Measured scan of single mutants.
Amino acid sequence: SQVHIGNTTFTFDNPEKAQKYAEKYAKKKGLTVQKNGDVWTVE
């Protein structure tokens, strides 16, 4: 599972961890999370 934030990609061994990280980061920065398969993009 991966989380894309700008030009940075974070890889997680667990989809739940990836989703939590993406949502927490997005909330903190006032951004949105797009999910595509097991990839979350914060923008």
Rank of each mutant, 00 (worst) to 15 (best):
S1C: 15
S1Q: 07
S1A: 13
S1K: 08
S1I: 14
S1Y: 15
S1R: 10
Q2F: 14
Q2W: 12
Q2I: 14
Q2M: 13
Q2E: 11
Q2A: 09
V3D: 00
V3M: 03
V3P: 02
V3W: 03
V3R: 02
H4I: 15
H4E: 05
H4V: 15
H4R: 15
I5W: 04
I5S: 02
I5Q: 02
I5E: 01
G6W: 11
G6M: 09
G6H: 09
G6Y: 11
N7T: 10
N7V: 07
N7G: 11
N7I: 07
N7D: 10
N7A: 09
T8E: 10
T8D: 08
T8Y: 15
T8H: 15
T8S: 11
T8C: 15
T8R: 15
T9L: 14
T9M: 13
T9E: 04
T9W: 15
T9Y: 15
T9G: 02
T9N: 05
T9R: 11
F10R: 08
F10A: 03
F10S: 03
F10L: 14
F10T: 03
F10V: 09
F10I: 13
F10D: 00
F10G: 01
T11I: 14
T11N: 10
T11P: 03
T11H: 14
T11A: 07
T11R: 09
T11F: 15
T11K: 10
T11V: 13
T11L: 13
T11G: 04
F12M: 03
F12T: 03
F12Q: 03
F12K: 02
D13P: 12
D13S: 13
D13L: 11
D13T: 10
D13H: 06
D13M: 10
D13Y: 09
N14T: 15
N14I: 07
N14M: 07
N14F: 04
N14H: 08
N14P: 01
N14G: 06
P15Q: 08
P15V: 06
P15W: 08
P15M: 06
P15G: 04
P15T: 06
E16P: 01
E16V: 11
E16G: 08
K17F: 09
K17L: 13
K17C: 15
A18S: 01
A18M: 01
A18K: 00
A18Y: 01
A18F: 01
A18P: 03
Q19C: 11
Q19L: 09
Q19M: 10
Q19V: 05
Q19A: 12
K20N: 11
K20P: 02
K20D: 12
K20G: 06
K20W: 13
K20Y: 12
K20M: 12
Y21I: 05
Y21G: 01
Y21P: 00
Y21D: 03
A22L: 08
A22N: 00
A22Y: 05
A22P: 00
A22S: 03
A22Q: 00
A22W: 04
E23C: 14
E23T: 05
E23R: 07
E23D: 06
E23Y: 11
K24R: 13
K24L: 12
K24V: 09
K24H: 11
K24T: 13
K24M: 14
K24E: 14
K24Q: 14
K24A: 15
K24N: 13
Y25P: 00
Y25A: 05
Y25D: 00
Y25R: 02
A26M: 04
A26R: 02
A26F: 05
A26K: 02
A26L: 05
A26G: 04
A26P: 00
A26I: 03
K27T: 06
K27I: 05
K27N: 08
K27H: 08
K27A: 10
K27R: 10
K27G: 06
K27L: 07
K27E: 08
K28Q: 12
K28W: 13
K28P: 03
K28T: 08
K28S: 12
K28G: 07
K28D: 11
K29L: 13
K29S: 06
K29D: 03
K29M: 14
K29P: 04
K29V: 06
G30E: 01
G30C: 09
G30D: 03
G30M: 03
L31E: 00
L31F: 13
L31R: 01
T32V: 11
T32F: 06
T32W: 04
T32H: 07
T32G: 04
T32N: 10
V33R: 04
V33Y: 06
V33L: 09
V33P: 03
V33K: 02
Q34W: 11
Q34F: 13
Q34M: 13
Q34D: 04
Q34R: 14
Q34C: 14
Q34A: 09
Q34S: 13
Q34E: 07
Q34N: 12
Q34L: 11
K35V: 06
K35L: 13
K35T: 04
K35G: 04
K35M: 06
N36H: 11
N36F: 12
N36D: 10
N36S: 11
N36T: 09
N36K: 11
N36W: 10
G37F: 04
G37D: 06
G37A: 06
G37T: 03
G37S: 02
G37Y: 03
G37L: 04
D38N: 14
D38H: 07
D38Y: 10
D38M: 09
D38L: 11
D38P: 06
D38R: 08
D38Q: 07
D38T: 10
V39E: 09
V39Q: 07
V39R: 04
V39A: 08
V39L: 07
V39Y: 07
W40L: 05
W40M: 00
W40R: 01
W40H: 02
W40S: 01
T41L: 11
T41Y: 14
T41E: 10
T41K: 06
V42R: 01
V42I: 12
V42S: 03
V42N: 01
V42D: 01
V42A: 02
E43Y: 14
E43M: 14
E43F: 14
E43R: 10
E43S: 13
E43V: 15
E43H: 12
E43A: 13
E43D: 12
E43C: 13
